[in-house]
Nucleic acid binder design. Structure first.
Lengths: 192, 192, 192, 192
DNA sequence: CATGAATGAGTTTTCATTCAT
DNA sequence: TATGAATGAAAACTCATTCAT
C-alpha cells in the first residue's frame, strides 16, 4: 500500500466507524484494524485522535462546498440559486449518510463545541461562504424576510438537517420530487 | 440534606455537567462531587449510569409536556393552537438552556438512538402527544400541506431547534417579539 | 421480633446465602434483607463480617459435635464406635447440606486458612475431640494401622467429605444402606 | 521480555497469588505487579478475569493428565496401574503445591461450580479420562467393589486430596515410602 | 435499640499513546 | 517507515461499615 493510500484507508475506516457507532464505538485500535494498518501507523498521519477527528470533519466540509458549487452560477436568478443550494445540500446529505452522520456526531460533541467556538459564525451547515453570500444578498435586496442572517439560516436549513436525519434513520423515504417540494416550502418560509 | 434533596442534587449536577460538557465530560465521580455526595450515593438513586441518563431525559420530557399543556385548549382555533405550541416550545428551550443542551446530547448518542428505536415515532420533540394529535388533525382537515406527518414535523420543528441552539450559543438574541414572528413564519411553511 | 430472634434470623440468612452463593454472593446488605433486619443491625450482634463468618462456623462445629455424641458410648466396642462416628458424620452432612456447603466454603477461603493456622491440629472435621480420642486409642491399642494420626484421619474422613459433596451436588444418591457399606469400607482402610 | 515470557509471568503470578491468598487476595492489579507487567497487559493475553482463571485451571489439568500418562501402560496388571495412578497423583499434588492449592480454590468457587455443571461428570480429579476408564474396567471385570463409579472415585481420591492438603499445610510429611503405603491402603478400600 | 442512607476505598476493565523492533 | 505489544490513567460500579435519626 502506498503512503497516500494508507492515509486514505485510515480516513475511510474512521469515518465509517464513527458515523455508525459514534465516537465511543471507534477506538483507535479498531480504526487501525478496519483500515488494515498498525495502531501506531495512524500517528504517522495524524498527531493524535483529536487531530484525526477534526481533519475528518474538514474533509467532509470540503466535499459539501464542492457539491454546492457544482452547477451553481451567480448569473442565475436568485430563487433558482436558492433552490439549487437547498436541494443540493439535502441531496448530498441523503446520498452521503456516512458524512451526514459524522457531521451530526461531530457537532454534538466536545469537538463540535470547540469548533463552533472558534468560528463564532453561526451557519449550521459549516462555513459555506457561497451560502452566506447569497443570504446576505437576499437581505440587502429585500428578497428575503427582514430577519437577522442567522435566523434566516435556521429557518432554511433547520428543516433540511431534520429531514436528512429522518430519511437516513428510515422514518421517511425522500425521492427527488419530494426533495423539490420540500425545498420550495423552505423557500416560501424565508422569502418576502 | 434530606433524602429527596440528595436525589435532586444529583439530577441537577448530572444535568448541568452533561449539558455543558457532554457525556464524556461527566464521569460519575465528577457528578458526585458537583452534587456534593459520595460516589456510591448516586447508585442508591439510579441503578447505573444508563438509568440515570435515561431518567434525566424523561424528567425533561415531562417538563416539556407540562409546559406545552399550560394554556393550551382544544377549543381554540387551529392556527392559534399551532402558534401556542411553537412559541411555547421555543420559549421553553431558550429559557431552559440546560434542558435543551441535554436533550441534544441525548439524541445524538447511543442512548438517544436506542430511545428512538423504541419509539418508532419520529417526532424530534420527543413523545409529545399533544403535538402529534394536532398535526394529525391538521392533515385530516386539510389545513396543513399534503406532506407525510414526519415531514411536517421537520418543517415546523427543525427551525425551532436550530434557533434555540443558536440563541443558547449566543449567536442571536431572541426576544418575545422575534419568537412570535419566527413561529408565524414556521406556520406559513406548513399551512396550506 | 425479640432480640435473640433477630440474631437467629441473621445467622440463618447468612448461612443459607453463603452456603448457596459463596462468600461473594452474600454481601451484608443482602444478608440483612434476607434476615428481615436493617443493615446496621447485624453490627449489634457481630462486630464485623469476619466475626460473623467465624461464629457461623463455630455454631456448625457445635452442631457436629453434638450429633457425634448422640448415641455415642465409650462402653461400646471399638469398631462399633468407629462406625457410629463415621455414619453419623456422613449422615449429618447429607441431611444438613447448608451446613456442609458452608463448612466447605469456609475451609477454602482466607477465613479457613487463618482458622487452620490457629489450630495447628490437622483433623479435617474440625476440633472434634471425641474423634481424636478414639483414633489415638486405636493407634495405642494397635487396632488401627501404624500410620501417623493425621493420615488415619484423612484415610477415614477424606472419603466421607467427598461423598457428602457428591451427594449434595446430586451426582449420587446415598441411602442408609449405602452409608453403612461405605463407612464399613472406610473402616477396612484404617483397621489393621 | 519476549512475548511468551510475559504471558508466562502473568500465569505464574496469578497462580501463586490465587493459590496462596485465594481469589479475593489476587486482584488484577496485584497480579500485574507480581508479574512485573502493566495492569492492561493482562488483557492482551486473557479476555477478562474469568478467562484467566479458567485457563489457569485448564493448564493445571493438562499438567496432571500428562503426569498420569507418564509411565502408564494399558499392558500392565490392573493393580499396578491403579497404584501408578494413585501414587502419581498424590506425588504430583505434593510436589506442585501451588497447582494443588489453585485447584482447591477453583473447585470451591463459582468458577468451579460452573465448571462442574458443564461436565456433569463427577470425578473429583477433573476430567482425567484415563482414570475413569480404569475404574470402569475394574467395575466391569468385578475387580473393584460393587459400588457406583462415583463412590469408588470418592473412596480412592478423597483420601488423596485430604492427604495432599495436610502435607502442603505442613501437618504431615509424606515421603515416598509413605505415599506407597497410603495408596496401597486406598487400593484395599476399593478392591473386592 | 434498630435502622438504612451515605460513604469512599477498592475492583475490573478500556483505550489513547508510546517506543523498541 | 510501519508495527503492535505494552502501558497506566481513568471510568463504572460494589460493598463493608458508620452514624444521624
Amino acid at each position: 500500500m502506498s503512503k497516500p493510500d494508507k492515509r486514505e484507508e485510515i480516513v475511510r475506516a474512521a469515518l465509517e466507524l464513527i458515523a455508525e457507532q459514534g465516537f465511543h464505538g471507534a477506538p483507535m485500535a479498531m480504526i487501525a484494524e478496519q483500515a488494515g494498518v498498525g495502531a501506531g501507523t495512524i500517528y504517522r498521519y495524524f498527531e493524535n485522535r483529536d487531530v484525526l477527528i477534526n481533519e475528518l470533519y474538514q474533509e467532509i466540509e470540503r466535499r459539501i462546498v464542492t457539491a454546492l458549487h457544482q452547477g451553481y452560477s451567480r448569473e442565475k436568478p436568485f430563487r433558482e440559486r436558492f433552490l439549487h443550494l437547498g436541494t443540493t445540500l439535502l441531496r448530498f446529505f441523503i446520498t452521503s449518510p456516512v458524512d451526514f452522520r459524522y457531521v451530526e456526531q461531530f457537532h454534538n460533541s466536545p469537538y463540535g463545541v470547540a469548533f463552533r467556538r472558534d468560528k463564532l459564525l453561526g451557519d449550521s451547515t459549516g462555513g459555506c461562504d457561497v451560502i452566506k453570500e447569497l443570504f446576505e444578498l437576499g437581505v440587502q435586496q429585500q428578497i428575503l424576510k427582514d430577519f437577522p442572517l442567522v435566523i434566516l439560516f435556521d429557518l432554511f436549513f433547520g428543516p433540511v438537517v431534520s429531514l436528512a436525519r429522518d430519511h437516513i434513520l428510515g422514518f421517511i423515504e425522500l425521492d427527488e420530487a419530494m426533495v423539490q417540494r420540500i425545498i420550495e416550502s423552505c423557500w416560501d418560509t424565508v422569502r418576502r
